[in-house]
Design a protein around this nucleic acid. Structure first.
Lengths: 227, 227
DNA sequence: GGGCGGGCTATACGAGCGTATAGTGAGCTG
DNA sequence: CAGCTCACTATACGCTCGTATAGCCCGCCC
């Protein structure tokens, strides 16, 4: 759909690359389980058997996509941020449209549970933890939790992009929509929303909950999902 | 697993209620598509055919679960918040263990795409928009986007609970883990992380991106105020 | 006490999935 | 030109899914 077979730039790619690109687009859109190898093959304009010929299995194709997406992400970040083409990494997706698809893919991959993107998440938390300790040490006592929440919220916001887009009336994974969303995020990060005293009071009121060790978990016992 | 068939409280429930509870737990854990009717039936201790007898179809069962979860959520919120049993709604899941499962279910339902939970999301955005306009009008110029980002981040954070839990070394959907996460969220909301001047500068630097393709009509902001 | 309704099970069906395998034809190499 | 390689297709297998259907069993009412 996005890139019809007639597209010249599309037909220049090798079949292997077309399959990979189609897989990334479909995985990003519908998730791994929601995408069939036949869908990918149709989108790439090849037969389903060719996926197996080039990648071995659907899972192997997915890992290949993960690696490719991570690699592309790093390359673009290096080029644009380290070379100073964009002042603030938060605005990067506005400057490089391919980033929007990569963000979408990686966010989905985070939800689908992939070892590679989970490691990326952990790296970002470590980076954020360092950054906060260095540039804003006064915002919290618990750097680790603060960093984890920061990264979790940011990636989670992207995971909710459908709903945010609906609320805003514009797709936040377009340049226009992303800029509006990023603007609101900048507001959120630069102005306190809650009165610190009110928060301190609420925190004190909740303190008794922390002690009791039998929370009983009347519902789930989360079976720690493997790497 | 979580509620073995031997559990007395479990066996007191009607088969219909056991099916619904099992479905909510499994849908919350693995998503709708990742759960089979046979899984649910096994978890509820009944035959697969009984799901169809009571609910008609998997999709109808799912809608029934949505409605039940939303209803339970509202009931608990009324009881605890409106009755003043908990000072701050943000800490509610720490005080009522069933909330953690409900949060998990609804978050997953948001990702799976359900009309009912999408409406809940929209309601929360509208509520947040009002709240910000009333209690913190100075934090942004774009109330709508600010509210959407706020709600998207908060629900998105829950969507990323696996990764946040891994980074923290504690399951954030237990009382203990949730309290730690909520503490970090409170820090985030009550202390500015970024220097407003720095943000303003970055925003100005990104301004040219707003109208990338058409060189004319640059700088004109859509200012689209939905709703 | 005999029929009857409904909660419940057993079994089966068709569709769609990932995967396997045999085969085809263009292009290179000697 | 013969022979080989390899990208690529066509077809099919085995499995699991949601769904459909036929029937069992037990409590209830006249």
């Amino acid at each position: 759909m996005a890139r019809p077979v007639g597209d010249p730039a599309f037909e220049d790619l090798t079949a292997r690359a077309r399959i990979r690109d189609a897989a990334i687009r479909l995985f990003a859109e519908r998730g791994v389980d929601g995408t069939t190898v036949r869908d990918i093959a149709a989108q790439a304009g090849v037969s389903p058997g060719l996926l197996r010929h080039h990648f071995g299995s659907k899972e192997a194709l997915r890992e290949s996509c993960d690696a490719y997406a991570l690699d592309r992400l790093m390359k673009i970040k290096e080029e644009f941020v380290l070379d100073g083409k964009v002042a603030n990494a938060g605005f990067l997706p506005s400057a490089h449209p391919a980033m929007l698809l990569l963000y979408k893919y990686i966010t989905r991959s985070l939800l689908d549970g992939s070892a590679g993107t989970a490691a990326l998440f952990d790296d970002m938390v470590a980076l954020a933890e360092q950054w906060v300790g260095k540039h804003a040490p006064e915002v919290t006592d618990d750097y680790r939790a603060y960093a984890a929440v920061l990264v979790g919220m940011q990636s989670g916001l992207l995971a909710m992009h459908d709903h945010v887009s609906r609320a805003l009336g514009v797709d936040v994974l377009t340049t226009e929509g992303y800029l509006r969303m990023a603007g609101a995020m900048a507001d959120l990060y630069s102005h306190p929303l809650l009165d610190p005293e009110f928060v301190a009071k609420a925190r004190r009121a909740m303190e008794p909950l922390r002690a009791p060790n039998p929370p009983t978990a009347a519902g789930t016992e989360p079976a720690a999902e493997g790497a």
